[in-house]
Design a protein around this nucleic acid. Structure first.
Lengths: 112, 112
DNA sequence: CGTGGCCATCGACGCCCGTCGATGTCTGAC
DNA sequence: GTCAGACATCGACGGGCGTCGATGGCCACG
C-alpha cells in the first residue's frame, strides 16, 4: 500500500447489503430508535397475554396520552405493532415477524 | 386516568426493559437507523479485511465526501466503528461487541 | 337520549438530522 | 518548501421528530 496511484485498500469484496434492502429496513430501525418506543414494545412483548391496552401503557410513562398515542402510531405504521379495538379500549400486540426481520440483520455471515 | 378497581387489561407482568436500558440502547439503534449508515456498516463488515478506507466508501454512494465523513463520525461516536489512521488514509472497522449488544435486544425471552 | 371515559387527531413549538459547498488540517511526494 | 490529495470540520439550509394542550370521534352505560 505504499504504491501511490493504486488502490489504497481492499475492494470491499463480499456480499454487502443492497441499497434497496437498506431503504427497506431503515424505517424499522428508525421506529425502534427511541427510548419510549423501545420500552413500549418491551412492555407489550413482556405482558402475560402478549398484548396491552393504551390505558396501562399510558401509566408507565410520564408523558401525555397524546404523545403515547403518537408513538404507538409510529410503531403501528412501521408494521411493528398490531392494533385491535375491543369496546372502548384499544389493544396493541407485537408482530413477531417484523421483529425477527430486524433480528436477521444482526446475523450477517460477514460478522461470524 | 385508570380506575384503580377496574382493570381493563393484563397488568403487564414479566420482565420489561428498564428505562435506563432503553436510554442506553436507543442511541445505537438511532445511529443504525439510516439507509446510508446501514450500508456503510454492511460494506465495512463484508470487506475481506474487515475494514475499509473512506476513499472506497465514498465511491459507493452518490453523496458528498463531507456527508460520508459525517455518517462515519456518527457511527464512530455511537461506538459502532473503530477508526484508525494509516498514513494519508483512514480505515474504519466494525466493533463486533456493539453489534452483538444490539443483536441481544432481539433475543428477548419475552419474545420466545 | 345525554354523559363520561378512552383514544386519535390537530396545530404548534423547539430541536435535531441529513445534506451540501467551502474551508481547514494533516500527510507524503517532488 | 511547496504542492496535491485524503479527511475532517464549519456554517447553513430544509425537513422531520418528540412533545404538548386542545379538540374531535367513538363506545358503553344510565
Amino acid at each position: 500500500m505504499s504504491d501511490p496511484g493504486l488502490a489504497c485498500c481492499t475492494p470491499l469484496t463480499g456480499t454487502a447489503m443492497s441499497a434497496e434492502q437498506a431503504e427497506r429496513v431503515a424505517p424499522l430501525l428508525k421506529a425502534l430508535a427511541d427510548p419510549v418506543r423501545l420500552r413500549l414494545v418491551s412492555l407489550i412483548a413482556s405482558s402475560a397475554t402478549g398484548e396491552a391496552c393504551v390505558c396501562d401503557l399510558n401509566d408507565a410513562f410520564d408523558l401525555t396520552q397524546a404523545t403515547i398515542s403518537h408513538h404507538l402510531k409510529v410503531l403501528h405504521s412501521a408494521g411493528l405493532l398490531d392494533r385491535e379495538k375491543r369496546g372502548v379500549w384499544v389493544y396493541y400486540a407485537v408482530r413477531r415477524e417484523a421483529l425477527t426481520a430486524v433480528a436477521n440483520l444482526f446475523e450477517m455471515p460477514a460478522l461470524a
